[in-house]
């Protein structure tokens, strides 16, 4: 259980360090055309990353310019910088960190959803639920976690158990996000 959560974090760090080194080492970057444009884009000052982040009931960002977004997905956590490779991914319960500029960053908890990075460098993150971390009640999370654990134990058939496990996974991620 713990491994499942620790691993993506490692991935994230690896991905981050790759990106960081990619921007520094221009010589090695030139080998890959896409990364070259990414670096050029960055020197120009983070232009053209139209970032949209919404849940069905609220819009957090709409075609906004941000520096970097860290996203938890089922294929590992990763960071998105301007001019990222076009990509499709599915969100998993976890924390999205939006670095608006060097100084400020915001953290949101998301339950599930989708991430799209298009070739025009627009990024769309659509979450089923997205809540700013400061609005989460730790007490309610603990209660929810207990309830979800009870539901998993009480589940009679496979389908109910699978549904309860999804709930539990989400609460565990939420608990983890509050602690960390």
């Amino acid at each position: 259980m713990h491994c499942g959560i620790v691993l993506p974090r490692l991935d994230e760090e690896v991905a981050m360090s790759i990106l960081r080194s990619a921007t520094k080492l221009h010589a090695s970057v030139r080998q890959c055309a896409r990364l070259v444009t990414a670096a050029q884009q960055q020197r120009r000052g983070y232009a053209d990353m139209a970032f949209t982040f919404a849940s069905p009931v609220t819009v957090h960002y709409e075609a906004a310019k941000v520096k970097q977004i860290d996203v938890p997905s089922f294929s590992g956590s990763f960071g998105i910088l301007p001019d990222h490779v076009p990509l499709l991914a599915v969100l998993k319960p976890g924390v999205i960190t939006v670095h608006e500029d060097d100084a400020t960053s915001k953290r949101f908890f998301v339950s599930s959803g989708s991430v799209t990075v298009n070739d025009d460098s627009s990024v769309q993150i659509l979450a089923e639920e997205a809540i700013a971390m400061e609005n989460i009640d730790a007490q309610a999370v603990r209660e929810g976690l207990n309830k979800a654990t009870a539901e998993v134990n009480a589940a009679s058939n496979d389908q109910a158990k699978a549904e309860a496990l999804i709930g539990l996974e989400c609460y565990e991620a939420l608990q983890k996000a509050i602690e960390g």
């Binding site: 949209t52 919404a54 069905p56 009931v57 799209t116 769309q124 659509l126």
Partner: peptide, 13 residues
Amino acid sequence: KPARSYGVGAKAF
């Protein structure tokens, strides 16, 4: 209003 931004995001791909 929020649903529209959401839908535009979903449509983009």
